[in-house]
Design a protein around this nucleic acid. Structure first.
Lengths: 241, 241
DNA sequence: TTATTATTGTAACATTTTATTACAATAATA
DNA sequence: TATTATTGTAATAAAATGTTACAATAATAA
């Protein structure tokens, strides 16, 4: 994780990095009954993008993806899934990147590695919204949560990448039992059901959902119950292994 | 598909290609009740590898994958699934490639682009075994079918790639309804069940399998029946849309 | 203190799906 | 023409899933 002045992303030849390959991360969080993603913004020109990064010489692809997500969220031990590689020849429109580089006073040279064609490996991350501290990077001066239903126009093919990430998340949901990564440490059955309903975008029946979740044997009831509502107090659950 | 003497893979700088990214193809066929994959061989040193290739400047990743599979099988309209990207820093042991290049009298220079680190995009293809004409490429002088259970030691991490491809195929089987790509144009229900059993590596019950397949509404009974056995003649089916 | 309200936990039942058993039909062979 | 092996599918059993129902109870209001 140590860095060198001469090998950050702004050097024109991309020294220290694998050229031509990027990582784009769709970082999902769940808050206020909404699925949200972390987006980067270059505020001056209102350019929005997915958090991304590059692979260092000698660095494993997977580690680079972890680093990207870690650097934007402040988390470690992140749940990551590699879901697709985006490799269309015309996906790398250099215009927005040029605008940003101009504004930062970086090389105007069309040969700059950041302006060449990139093939991008898509990863989605599932994180506990309450634990994240969004952090801008060297290129974008903003980093914030956006509800999936309220995403601004994104640069290049990043909207497609978000769509594909959501598709994969849905397809994996029952299969891989990964929804828990989006919950805080303790949660009610209703919280969990809301999450499933939001991801799948459909209502589920409460008794069936409860029966199914409990039968998986991966939920543990916590001693204390949730409290606050004018009704029977629900159990709190914790995810176990 | 047209080529230029100066931009084939052997030019030292990889001109005409995207450097650092390769495509590896796991081409599945079904024959003699066995799942088989097409493997490349450099006969002199008995080096085995998956069919692979590189992305040309201006070529879509997906098109490059199609070209690779097309060039090895002689087929077009190939069923392809991108299943994983292999990006460990140490996956690109240059030794076998050096051996081959030496033998072909190509550059001994360690700077040759083929000897650098590669990130590889894995695709699996499902093809009709009976329609394939295996064809060697510029690097390997052999191209043959090998039963999955009988695969020789492969170079680099290609055995891992095969394993991952099979995992993905299994996971997608019921989901994506893709098994038909491995069958000839007409087949009996028993042929199809054998294929499923081979891929999933478990026995299936005949009535349940038949009911399920017919209920999908994607099979059409052909006028003639299969003939040859000392028993009731089974229907022949064809895959529709 | 006691009734009211909203929501929970889960039992009971209904429906659908999947698994299993059974058996008549029939192409090739004896 | 009888025998054999295998097919196509009906019938039944079991499991999974969907739906209704209702007692339990935390907070609030009377």
């Amino acid at each position: 994780m140590k860095e060198n002045k001469t090998t950050n992303e702004s050097n024109p030849a991309g020294e220290g990095f694998i050229r031509g390959i990027a990582i784009d991360a769709v970082i999902f969080g769940f808050h206020d009954q909404l699925l949200k993603v972390l987006l980067m913004q270059y505020k001056k020109s209102n350019i929005f993008a997915l958090p991304g990064g590059f692979i260092r010489d000698g660095e494993d692809l997977e580690d680079a993806a972890k680093r990207v997500v870690s650097d934007r969220t402040g988390l470690k031990d992140i749940y990551l899934d590699q879901f697709y590689v985006f490799g269309d020849a015309n996906r790398s429109d250099p215009t927005p990147m040029k605008t940003i580089m101009d504004a930062w006073g970086l090389s105007h040279d069309d040969d700059h590695w950041l302006l060449q064609r990139f093939i991008s490996v898509g990863y989605y991350a599932l994180v506990d919204f309450t634990q994240v501290t969004p952090m801008p990077d060297r290129i974008f001066d903003g980093c914030e949560w956006y509800a999936l239903s309220d995403i601004p126009k994104l640069m290049q093919d990043h909207e497609l990448i978000v769509r594909k990430a959501l598709e994969s998340l849905r397809a994996n949901l029952d299969n891989k039992l990964i929804a828990f990564n989006l919950m805080p440490a303790e949660f009610t059955m209703n919280d969990l059901q809301s999450l499933y309903e939001t991801i799948l975008d459909k209502k589920l029946l409460r008794p069936a959902f409860q029966r199914k979740m409990l039968s998986l044997g991966i939920l543990e009831r916590v001693a204390k119950k949730w409290t606050g509502g004018a009704h029977k107090a629900p159990y709190l659950y914790r995810f176990i292994s």
